[in-house]
Design a protein around this nucleic acid. Sequence first.
DNA 1: GCCATTTGACCCGT
DNA 2: ACGGGTCAAATGGC
Length: 316
Amino acid sequence: MESQWPKTSLADVKRLIKELNRGQEFTHQLREVILENGGTTTSMLAEDLVEKIMDSFCKTLSIINSSNSNELVSQLVPVAAAVLPCRKSREGSCETYSLKDERECNKKRNISRTSVKETSTLVDDGHVWRKYGQKQILDAPFPRSYYRCTHKFDQGCRATKQEQRIQANPPRFRTIYQGHHTCTPTNNYPTVSQILSHTYHEDSSSVLLNFNSNTCSPTFPSRKKEIKQDVSLISPFYYTINHNQEKSSSSDDSFIPSDDHLIEAGALSSGSDNGDHFISSGSVYSSCTSTHSTEMEMDMYMMADLVDFDEFINLL
DNA sequence: GCCATTTGACCCGT
DNA sequence: ACGGGTCAAATGGC
């Protein structure tokens, strides 16, 4: 299968995967260290691991950048900045993050993540919310509803959202998500091999691999209709690896023009399902369709868990 | 009876 | 002082 890839693109993808995998492993180790220390201020070891994670992600960005994939980089940088802890400038540090970036990062540290989604209907984003207030907003024709994650008190999850109707006819709703879910999953996640095995054994079926280790929602549905999760919250991007030289219709932003395959990235539209290119969030979505395309949507927040990227790329 | 929603009161930032 | 966000008692549905 590797021969189907253009050499340079394949090499870049493999390097990218490897670096992501490293970041995953280091993050995992860091979590272990933090857990061992009972969540208190950690040691030089933890600091070193954070450095490695930063290095890993910076290299990933450089690899992508060298592939002239500016659009993907433009999406990766803010995501990585949100994921990774800010740090002081240090000799030999990755050039991807400038001092200005770090200042911006520090400035935004205490600002909770916010995203806005406008939809024609109030869709179930897969999370369990508890309404805690409603208020009439000045100069707004419709009241605004306030929701918090149902796990706010039992798990300290601080995710909230606001919903407000902004237009009567046709109906239009604005949902503002703040913070991200820190509640723990209630079930186990499949491995990549499980995903691929499941996918290829069930023709035209689809499965979801959820990277979102803090999700409150079901994570391994077998049917597309069940794969409805919060798209806006995690600022996702996604890749399409098309084995049939067909440009995916799920994105307008091709970042690696290639001979045999396309890997695409783009911001997701709100919860759309356009047949073969179903979009979900916080997840890797694999679809074994008639075009044999595989879509991967990667939640960069959740790199610490679940997926062996080397195994994944080897299986492609 | 339990749990989610409603809604007026209160808090806080500007 | 005002407006937006949150709290918490009251209410309603199962």
